[in-house]
């Protein structure tokens, strides 16, 4: 299904507007769920003081689901992932409280055989309970 003009307008309105921040209380179980899903059993994901340590790719999941749902409000579009760029500043351990803000940074239209598709870029910033930056993630999604 091609993207409609109304959908394009709605997404364009979001450019540069930060979403309401999401707050995540990072529990051991959340990190374990992530490492189990990846199949990553590295001992380094457990700290000496018995905390769970998140793999550096863990921030990729924070706020991503909400952004995808918001880009596909009426669930009519197909969304594929175009690219991911992650900058890691600090590690995440269980007990951290993370604040995540996401912003659409750009929208590009492309005419294809089946109609218009959209290339939407967005960035997700993650900071911890000490207001220290933890990660910056830039993503590109393809909607059609």
């Amino acid at each position: 299904m091609a993207v409609t003009s109304q959908q394009i307008e709605e997404i364009n309105k979001r450019i540069g507007v930060a979403d309401t921040p999401l707050v995540y209380d990072i529990e051991k179980g959340m990190i374990k769920c992530f490492t189990c899903a990846v199949g990553d059993i590295n001992a380094k994901w457990q700290s000496d003081d018995n905390k769970a340590v998140a793999p550096p790719t863990f921030p990729l999941i924070l706020g991503f689901d909400r952004m995808i749902q918001e880009l596909n409000m009426d669930s009519t579009l197909t969304i594929l992932h175009g690219s991911t760029n992650l900058e890691c500043y600090r590690s995440i351990v269980s007990g951290d409280t993370l604040t995540v803000t996401s912003t659409v940074t750009g929208v590009r239209e492309r005419e294809g055989e089946k109609g218009k598709s959209l290339f939407v870029t967005f960035e997700i910033k993650c900071s911890n309970q000490r207001q220290e930056p933890v990660a910056l993630c830039r993503q590109m999604a393809i909607l059609y």
Binding site: A37, P55, P56, T57
Partner: peptide, 26 residues
């Protein structure tokens, strides 16, 4: 896609050992 990306992340973190740090990933 992000699951496959995390597989690549695991390859890197397995390789760099306990003291290695992943700084950037695209």
């Amino acid at each position: 896609g992000q699951l496959a990306a995390c597989f690549l992340g695991q390859m890197i973190t397995d390789w760099i050992g306990k003291e290695g740090i992943l700084k950037e990933f695209s």
